[in-house]
Design a protein around this nucleic acid. Sequence first.
DNA 1: TTCTTGTTTTGATCCATGTCAATGCAAGGG
DNA 2: CCCTTGCATTGACATGGATCAAAACAAGAA
Lengths: 249, 249
Amino acid sequence: MRNAVLQDTLTPKHLKASHIQPNCSTCSLRELCLPVGLDEPEVEALGDLVNHKCQVKRGEYLHRAGSDFKSLYAVRRGVFKTCILEKDGRQQVTGFHMTGELIGLDAISTERHTCDAIALEDSEVCEIPFAKLEEMGRNIPPLMHHFHKIMSREIVKDHGVMMLLGSMKAEERLATFLLNLSRRYFKRGYSSSDFILRMTREEIGSYLGLKLETVSRAFSRLQEEGIITVKNKHINISDIDRLRSKIGG
Amino acid sequence: MRNAVLQDTLTPKHLKASHIQPNCSTCSLRELCLPVGLDEPEVEALGDLVNHKCQVKRGEYLHRAGSDFKSLYAVRRGVFKTCILEKDGRQQVTGFHMTGELIGLDAISTERHTCDAIALEDSEVCEIPFAKLEEMGRNIPPLMHHFHKIMSREIVKDHGVMMLLGSMKAEERLATFLLNLSRRYFKRGYSSSDFILRMTREEIGSYLGLKLETVSRAFSRLQEEGIITVKNKHINISDIDRLRSKIGG
DNA sequence: TTCTTGTTTTGATCCATGTCAATGCAAGGG
DNA sequence: CCCTTGCATTGACATGGATCAAAACAAGAA
């Protein structure tokens, strides 16, 4: 829509690159993304290795489970979900990824992607060739260190999800999920109390280990209690303290 | 028991070090642990930075949530559990760690441990100062690369647990758990069909998102079906194929 | 040995969530 | 506009696992 012309440039691969904003230095996500803690020349060097602004339309795959791993992707605009699919058809959403977040960390271990990554709305990513990143990390210790922190944070996040899945009830899970989204929107300069969900009830359910009906009922209950307002994908948190108290109350 | 004398050496900190086998080069776990893929001089260099053989008795903490992070630990002997504890008392076991596996990856993100690590039997670890590891990684690219693979593998593992917690039934969870243990014992040269559990039913339950009674019942059912034999902590897998078919059948 | 303590098993019952089914609602296409 | 399609809500009912309770069992201490 916004950049319809740009989106229709020639496509060497499945990813369409456009070079409007060709470096990390000028990127508004700088402080959320890989370059955290780097000085100006370092950011420039990093930016030179990154393929900026690859477009992924809503519903398109950024990568599929089993495909070759060459690059990490940083979300520049939009939202992605990642999910794993068992042979028996079972599916698990393993994460939702917002701007500044890295996708593909799981693939380093086997050089193959272990999950599908799918755009939940028209999105853009920056492609970061991993071999080059490692090489550059050797010369820029803060870059390497921050990369380690990002991987570690991913592990901590997953442990939080394990806690949620292992020992929380439906309503607690949903409250936790909403508060997490709220915090992440806030960090990005958006309202922490009013936002649009980019994922369906089924995707939320898959992430939270619940059926979509249970998710829907939990939404309704929180609404009846006056804690949130739900209008389809539009969520308004009217009483964040009571929402917080839903967890482990 | 075996090394009672050694265990009673002077203790500068809470970890007691003894210097019988002072380098990674001669360690039998070399191919399971950090040094994978390194050549001889590199392994020696790595070994020099590691504080080998710190003893941790059964029930003792290797580290606690909130404590300062300085080092990773590689399990050299024994088994550990890691668990997070919410303010409301809820507890979640996030992993069981066998020889050659690294503990502490979660702590890199905030420089604080995010979980408790507790020895489930008398154990030994090697302490790996993380700052030094990063420094050395700059000069030994394969070391850095393998470290990234280890972190990535941890993420993949956690995604597997999320799948398990999010969409499997009690019996499937337990079957998955047993098959995972079986594979890990096998890799370490032990029987893949006959082993001793080091954790209680309650700890298994916490890891699998089940109550201990449910774990016990699932064991009993698998035994009634002739798939395994359970005698307290002693497990014998008599029909591994049928155990596999329990998952997603 | 007996006592104690922690763990495991088993049974009886309950409840949160899953399942099945119907209806409602919003968005896009003809 | 209506029709279609996908998503969300709501209700009725079934069920897997939680909970509560008791007993069995194992290991260590006295």
